[in-house]
Design a protein around this nucleic acid. Sequence first.
DNA 1: GTGTAAACTTGACACTGTGTCCATAGCGGT
DNA 2: ACCGCTATGGACACAGTGTCAAGTTTACAC
Lengths: 196, 196
Amino acid sequence: MSSEKTDTRTRILDAAWGLLESRDGPARMADIARAAGISRQALYMHFPNRADLLIATTRHIDAVKDIDARLVPSRTAETGRARLDAFVEAWGAYIPEIQGVARALMAMQEADAEARRAWADRMAAVREGCAAAVDALARDGDLAPGLSPEAATDLLWTLLSVPNWAHLTGPCGWSQADYRHAMTRLARAALVAPDG
Amino acid sequence: MSSEKTDTRTRILDAAWGLLESRDGPARMADIARAAGISRQALYMHFPNRADLLIATTRHIDAVKDIDARLVPSRTAETGRARLDAFVEAWGAYIPEIQGVARALMAMQEADAEARRAWADRMAAVREGCAAAVDALARDGDLAPGLSPEAATDLLWTLLSVPNWAHLTGPCGWSQADYRHAMTRLARAALVAPDG
DNA sequence: GTGTAAACTTGACACTGTGTCCATAGCGGT
DNA sequence: ACCGCTATGGACACAGTGTCAAGTTTACAC
């Protein structure tokens, strides 16, 4: 009953996703509407504005790509070090999947307060993941000396930011494997006590 | 002769600078013109478009704040490690001064190819500074094992990016001193061989 | 069938900001 | 007096977002 014909909302979300990930130019509201097979105005019946649509798209991607399942290895890691590695790997592998939406949302930040709030909200969730990894590290006594858990969390949160991924894989020309390897190494160097 | 009455171009640049660093909302062309005491159209006689104006503003700030002088300690450092520290410190202290223009220019990137090119250009200069520091480190044999000079340069370049500064001092709430301290430590941890 | 409500369409429009065009004015130099 | 430069004011094209109103389709109820 619920899904005999694809829900319009879902079609919109899929269309937005597709355009944002694959597109050359920017994905405008009209482009997304056309791709979803509806009129531009119908778009506004489902999402009051662009920021809301974009943020809903990230949540949609989260659901389809099952972000929670990807984080299981991190949550179930035995040691703090393993948890850190697993988190870096999971989130680092996830960034390319949301890269398009993330870029669009970040580009709106300067102009649109709504977009700012929405993106900050999403990033707060990432920070929680960082905090959990740092806590595990601290419980093992493996947190680098002179680094408070809060500072370590902020640092990891920053290292794993989307702009950093974009910079390394864009201007720097790194492959995803390069990124993954270097970021794992970097996170360890930044957070883990130098001891063995 | 040249500067008996302040050059209009300079007045524009100062106005843009002032607005961009201190402003709540976005600095539009009309705002900048008004602040410079000229008409919006006169602005376009001096700068063909917003991207050009913004990039000229960064160069203007470079000249006024004498970026070259600030980099002297880095260039004249005796050891690679000292050079790295000095570079991180100099650039890290400089970011807050250009933060406003940088944000405006970065916000245009998505939409405007001209802005993209201009900002990439400016960042290429920063990368050269990073490369010089990494080379000095490599000459001393102090570059972390398993890290090529190119990879190390890219890494440092990324760590010192404006978005990272913005993230730490914005959402993370760090002070400039916090940033300076953590970034110095982080750059060392990321690039310098663990040996003493 | 008739009625009604929801989802959707078409078309027009307001608004913002960039960039262009043009007619004109002031002013210094020759 | 004339030229050239810099500037002004006003109008306008264009893109993109968001709004509004009138009408259509569909499905479901009575």
